[in-house]
Design a protein around this nucleic acid. Structure first.
Lengths: 110, 110
DNA sequence: CTATCATTTAGACGAACGTCGAACCACCCG
DNA sequence: CGGGTGGTTCGACGTTCGTCTAAATGATAG
């Protein structure tokens, strides 16, 4: 599956189950915004301390959402002294984009 | 917002809330598969009777998932005599694809 | 070593979700 | 009009999710 065509050919149960895990990870306002903030951060890396301030949520909650994104393979993290930095993993994110692109153009009568 | 850039600029709370609704609609194996089946169907329209057989789920459950997709604006439906037909709404689906495409390429020290 | 700050883990609670069975509505056929 | 079939709506049940507080881990400063 190089481009994950949601259309053109019906997806099987296994594929959708795997992709749904990925989609569930981003199907939350906080996580979507976190992903956006990390992805748009200068240098490609963002510290947790930069992210926490943007929400009216407690630190453990932000940490929880970051863990979900990391478990899904969408972001990576590394501790650098006192602070922890996060970055986007482009390949996994690209799968999401490629999923719906073929559906944007209507199926030309099969 | 012409291309929904998840990266390049951090998304606001309102945008993410709206997009999360769209993502939640497809963040389910059954709905993702339904969307795929409808999108890949010859002629661009699929009858409910064609969809129900592919799952080990009851008809009400399939109907529920179709309603979620329709409420999200991802598919349209019409009754044609005895059967009900569903089709993809490309514009709304395209938003999902455009969301992650800019993130696929790493932020060039933006 | 102790104090302090940044982050994660653990446990608990209310809300939302996915599924089902039963009942209901819309249409076709005699 | 009455019966049968295809789909949907309703109400309920168990599970999962998002959030919190409290406590634990890791790292720097004194």
């Amino acid at each position: 599956m190089c481009c994950a065509p949601i259309a053109r050919q019906p997806l099987g149960g296994d594929e959708t189950a795997e992709l749904a895990v990925l989609l569930k990870a981003v199907a939350d306002p906080v996580r979507l915004r976190l992903l956006s903030m990390i992805g748009s951060h200068a240098g490609g890396e963002a510290c947790v301390c930069d992210l926490t301030g943007a929400f009216d949520l407690t630190a453990p909650t932000i940490s929880h959402h970051l863990k979900v994104l990391r478990t899904a393979g969408l972001i990576g993290s590394e501790r650098c002294g006192t602070w922890v930095y996060y970055w986007i993993i482009p390949d996994q994110v690209a799968r999401l984009g490629a999923l719906f692109t073929p559906l944007a153009v209507p199926a030309v009568t099969g």
